[in-house]
Simulated assay, not measured.
Amino acid sequence: MMLNRAAAAGVGLARVMAHCGGNPTAAMHYVTGAIASAPEAPEPYAILAELWEEQRTDLGELFQGADSLRTVLAQSYISFLENNMDGAVLALGAVTGAQPTIVWAKAPWFSDARFLDGVSANALAEAAMRTMDYGHDLDAHSMREGFRPWFRAIEVVCDREPLPEMMAKMAIFLRACGLTDASFALCDRADSIERIMLTEVVRAGTWRKLGDPDQTAAAFQRALALDPANWSLYLDLADVRAEQGDFTTAVQFIDQGLEHEPTEVTLRAAGAAYRARLTGSHDDLRELIGLAPHLPNDSYRGLLIDHACAGPALPSELIAEARRLQNS
């Protein structure tokens, strides 16, 4: 393929720095910039391979503890060169999570048979999860087009190494990309090997994305049957029923969860919120106010406060105190 202008300039400068300037750090900077400009072009990878072959000691020292995007990108290809396919995919997953609009997976090595035959299901699943680390929206046509090599890798690796837990994690990635039918299908394949709790949780999340609370709850109930002591599943079921306005059932699920984990702060906060919404209990709203600062998720804290403050006949000063926590 023809290199675009930015990639061609980066390749040229990398060659100068590598062979004339004797500066491997600068050379790597330019070559990784060229990869970013044209991930599918083979020339920058060839230069990076030459750099690694000739100056691996200097580059190895550079990689120690470095976590810049360009360094991690270089590590992905060098891991491939060293037959460390798991390290390669984990690094590329991290880079993709940081900048998913660049089609990093067009790298020729990512579709190479040697990579697809060598990468483990565990590493591919973890790498797929890393693509979501920064919260970017992957559910768009342009994103799906760019992620086609990932979808192909999932197909190949799941055929070779069908591990239910890893397949469930990959199904989360497919869902994030808007491929809900493919996500369900991969969950079904995982079930054909062994039914596990995580697969049902993934199904529940997919039904929730599709806006079907009853199917969501049914999947969580199946997950609970597989792991009946899991407090977080009771919380999930309570949240689904609260979304439907059924706070009586929500409180019942919370109480069941507390039987397994009576000190869990998120369960206690949700229980206080849902009881306040159901009964207008001043004490429950006060309990939520005390627990809310300890909740790790700000958006969930805000949601619980919204529910609680809608309870009947609650005093305005107590509501105002709760609302202040939403804005803190």
Rank of each mutant, 00 (worst) to 15 (best):
A276G: 09
D112T: 11
I319M: 03
A46W: 08
R222I: 02
G211D: 10
V103E: 06
R286W: 01
A36E: 14
L48F: 11
L3V: 06
H29P: 02
R323L: 10
P39F: 02
I254S: 09
P228W: 04
C158H: 06
E161A: 13
H307M: 00
P42R: 13
S68C: 02
S111K: 07
R160G: 04
A153I: 00
L163T: 14
R5N: 13
K169P: 02
Y274W: 13
P312F: 09
L138V: 04
A242W: 04
C20Y: 15
D191M: 08
S183M: 08
Q99P: 00
L288F: 13
G12D: 12
V157T: 14
T32I: 05
E40A: 15
I154A: 14
D159Y: 10
A34C: 08
E145S: 15
Q64D: 14
R222Q: 12
L179P: 12
L138P: 04
L179Y: 02
C187M: 04
A273Y: 01
A49G: 15
L163Y: 11
V89D: 02
K169C: 02
I102H: 05
R160F: 02
S232L: 05
P164T: 10
L48C: 02
D214S: 08
T96W: 06
L318S: 05
Q215W: 03
A46R: 15
A219G: 10
A14L: 08
V156W: 03
A176P: 00
D283L: 09
T32S: 05
I289V: 15
P312K: 11
T71Y: 04
T101D: 07
T101A: 10
F151R: 13
H282D: 12
A320G: 10
C177Q: 12
V240A: 02
E126A: 14
R114L: 03
A38T: 07
L235P: 09
T32H: 06
R195D: 09
L81A: 06
P42E: 09
N230C: 09
D283P: 03
G146I: 01
F80P: 07
L226P: 04
I193R: 13
A74W: 01
